[in-house]
């Protein structure tokens, strides 16, 4: 029983984080049909903001808000630096500029901060554990589950009930038509990047909370997770991203429990093989996105 509880908590907390990561990537992809390779660096930005503000006497929550704010800011900055100038030219051009921008941010962190890990301030509660039904689990896992439930619900509310969200969904299927109704293209795109940055910021704090330090390459794993989860779930569907995130977490956690120490090192390779199998079966991913959709 305790094992089952442990397993479920692991899957849910990992899956929540994965789902948020994937969601942040798909929000951009859904609207622009463009992949943001600099997405992982938003998590890095959140981490370094925490590190840089750790010297101040600000309460932790303020630091966290600041970190999320910086991630939002850099999200919007990504649009201006890597997307807007080349958006109309070609898909490959944007892939390359966002990849270059990702390298730029990473190396800036390397140059101006340090290649070595830096400690990130975390509240006491992140390192405490509780016992649930005999299973001992870190409190931060429960925080992650709670945070992801709240955020997923908030994103669902935003996309279903607010004018901005409905306009974003409309823009994802037919950008030109949305503009013809008066929905400003730039507002939609900036909102998408801001939302993406917001999700990256929150997930960044939760993610870094597991290790307690930040390095320039911290964004790689979340980026990869978001990539794989979105490919599994379907590149253009928001629910697909969430499903993909939880499914990937289920696969990873199962492998964590079943593989021997020797094989565990190859976990990513096993996960990837499973992804290939899923894609052989469904090249579009599990959930198909909106029916139509041209790029702008």
């Amino acid at each position: 029983m305790a094992f089952a509880i442990q397993f479920v908590i692991d899957v849910l907390s990992l899956g929540g984080a994965y789902a948020l990561m994937a969601l942040g990537l798909v929000i951009i992809y859904g609207i622009l049909r463009l992949v943001n390779f600099a997405y992982g660096e938003l998590i890095m930005v959140a981490g370094y903001t925490m590190y840089l503000s750790s010297g101040s006497s600000l309460p932790w929550l303020v630091m966290a808000v600041l970190a999320v704010g910086m991630a939002v800011l850099f999200g919007i900055l990504t649009d201006y630096a890597a997307f807007r100038p080349v958006r109309a030219k070609s898909v490959t051009a944007v892939l390359i500029t966002s990849f270059a921008f990702s390298n730029l941010l990473q190396n800036a962190a390397l140059l101006f901060i340090s290649p070595r890990p830096r400690n990130v301030p975390l509240p006491e509660i992140f390192s405490q554990t509780v016992s649930i039904g005999g299973a001992i689990t870190p409190v931060r896992n429960l925080i992650t589950i709670a945070a992801s439930i709240v955020l997923l619900a908030a994103v669902a509310f935003l996309m279903r009930k607010t004018t901005l969200g409905i306009a974003m969904r409309a823009a994802a299927t037919n950008f030109t038509m949305a503009r013809m109704l008066g929905v400003p293209a730039n507002l939609i795109i900036s909102s998408a990047f801001a939302l993406s940055g917001f999700l990256a910021g929150v997930v960044g704090i939760l993610w870094i909370g597991r290790i307690g330090t930040v390095v320039p390459g911290i964004g790689l794993e979340p980026l990869l997770v978001a990539f794989i989860a979105t490919v599994i779930g379907g590149m253009r569907s928001l629910p697909g991203a969430v499903v993909g995130g939880f499914l990937l977490a289920l696969i990873d956690t199962t492998l964590n429990y079943t593989l021997s120490q020797d094989l565990l090192k190859f976990r990513d390779a096993f996960t990837f093989s499973l992804v290939i199998l899923i894609l052989l079966w469904r090249p579009e991913g599990l959930i198909k996105g909106p029916a139509s959709g041209q790029r702008t």
Partner: peptide, 14 residues
């Protein structure tokens, strides 16, 4: 000084 080369190359690429 590390990463300067990559920064310049990234800017050139963009």
């Amino acid at each position: 000084v590390v990463g300067l080369t990559e920064i310049v190359l990234a800017l050139a690429m963009i």
